Computed example of a mutant assay.
Amino acid sequence: MTTGTPPPTAPKRSRARTFVPLAIAAWAVLEIWLLTLVADVAGGFTVLLLLLGGIVLGAVVTKAAGRRAFRNLTETLQQMPGRPGATAAPAAPAGGSKGNGFLMLAGLLLIIPGMISDVAGLLLLVPPVRAVLGRYTQRSLDRRMRSAAPGSFSDVFQQARMHRPDGKVVQGEVIRETDPQQGPSRNENPRPPLTP
């Protein structure tokens, strides 16, 4: 009779890994069923026009949101302190800069062929819907960050604020003074200096 270690137990499968593939499969089946239903009522050419219109509108929305995001990034980088022509106080973001992520998602949903994704993409194009979803997402993210366990990703930012409240990063290196005749001790491992 041998006494060995117990057999390893398989890690528990998360609910997301279980239900997300099922939800995607159900969504695809529902999209195909709706497309065939619309094709029976309105004809195949109408369905083709609807799909092509969704692709074109989605591409236009995605391109516009991408340009706006790039413009906002460029303006932010130009206003960084220490840059020529930078203002003393950062300017407030433009009113249309919020919701670029939802506009990109709307464009992607419009590009994906299907009626449900097109309706969801068109709903995301409505500014009040984007505003409500943005507030909900922000509250949800804030709640998750507050309830994160110590040592998690959010804790890193909290620690950084405690050590350097001004947020400045000073690059440098630590130099240990050793006796030149004795040399480095056995426990120390000399390392080359950090270079940018």
Results as ranks from 00 to 15, higher is better:
M1N: 07
P6R: 06
P6L: 12
P8L: 15
T9P: 04
P11Y: 11
K12G: 13
S14R: 05
R15Y: 15
R17Y: 01
V20A: 15
V20M: 13
I24K: 06
W27A: 02
A28K: 01
A28E: 03
V29E: 03
L30I: 05
W33T: 15
D40F: 10
A42S: 12
G43Y: 02
F45R: 05
F45P: 03
F45E: 13
V47T: 05
L49D: 04
G53L: 07
I55M: 15
I55W: 06
V56A: 01
V56R: 00
L57K: 00
L57N: 00
V60C: 01
V60K: 00
G66H: 09
N72C: 06
L73G: 12
E75M: 10
E75T: 08
T76H: 11
Q79T: 12
G82E: 05
P84E: 09
A86S: 14
A88S: 07
P90Q: 12
A91Q: 11
A91P: 08
A91T: 11
A92W: 00
A94Q: 06
G96K: 08
S97K: 00
N100Y: 04
G101T: 10
M104K: 12
M104D: 01
L105N: 02
A106D: 01
L108S: 03
L109W: 06
L109R: 02
I112N: 00
P113A: 03
S117C: 13
S117I: 02
G121Y: 01
G121L: 02
G121W: 00
L123F: 15
L123K: 10
L124Y: 02
V129L: 09
V132A: 12
V132K: 07
S140K: 07
D142V: 03
R143C: 03
R143N: 13
R144Y: 02
M145D: 13
A148N: 08
A149K: 15
A149I: 06
G151K: 11
D155A: 14
D155S: 14
D155G: 11
F157H: 10
Q158R: 14
Q159H: 14
A160R: 04
M162Y: 11
R164E: 14
D166R: 05
D166F: 04
G167Y: 06
G167T: 05
G172Q: 06
E173G: 03
V174Y: 14
I175M: 10
E177W: 04
T178D: 06
D179I: 12
S185G: 15
N187M: 05
E188T: 11
R191V: 12
R191D: 10
P192D: 11
P193M: 06
L194F: 14
